[in-house]
Amino acid sequence: NARWTTEEQLLAVQAIRKYGRDFQAISDVIGNKSVVQVKNFFVNYRRRFNIDEVLQEWEAEHGK
């Protein structure tokens, strides 16, 4: 399903906090979204969920 429920959106943001840009890991956490759908989520929801800021926090924690 290409549509993202609110629950899936929140799950994705939590997974980004945990896995950074590991699209496969994020896809696995959500369970019903492909890697391509996760990559599209990054692009389409970047502003709404401040994904750049979430990634900066992840990179700071993981030394990337």
Rank of each mutant, 00 (worst) to 15 (best):
H62V: 11
R48C: 10
Q14F: 04
S34H: 06
W4Q: 04
F41M: 01
Q24F: 08
S34D: 14
V13L: 14
W58H: 15
N44Y: 03
F41Q: 02
V38F: 01
A12W: 02
R46F: 12
Q56G: 10
G63D: 09
N40C: 11
G20T: 00
E7M: 12
K64Y: 05
Y19S: 02
A2E: 15
E61P: 01
Q37V: 03
E7Y: 08
A2C: 14
I51G: 05
E53V: 10
Q9F: 05
Q37I: 01
N32Y: 05
E8M: 09
D22C: 05
V54C: 08
H62A: 12
K39Y: 05
S34W: 08
N44H: 09
K33N: 06
L11S: 06
H62D: 07
V29R: 10
K18N: 13
G20M: 00
N40A: 15
F49C: 14
A15F: 02
D28M: 09
K18G: 02
Q24V: 09
R21Q: 09
T5V: 00
Q9P: 06
R48H: 14
R47Y: 12
Q14T: 11
K64T: 14
V43E: 13
A2G: 09
K18S: 08
V13P: 03
E53C: 10
A2T: 15
W4Y: 00
R47N: 14
V43Y: 06
R3T: 14
Q37C: 06
W58C: 08
V43D: 13
E53N: 11
I26P: 01
N32Q: 08
V54M: 13
W4H: 07
V43I: 15
D28P: 01
Q56R: 14
L10W: 07
V13H: 12
V43F: 07
A2W: 10
F42A: 03
R48W: 03
T5N: 13
R47A: 14
R46V: 07
N1H: 04
K33S: 00
D28W: 09
Y19K: 06
L10G: 08
L55W: 04
D22M: 07
A12F: 13
A12E: 00
F49L: 14
D28Q: 14
L11F: 13
R46T: 12
F49G: 06
V38Q: 09
A12G: 09
G63S: 10
E8H: 07
D52K: 06
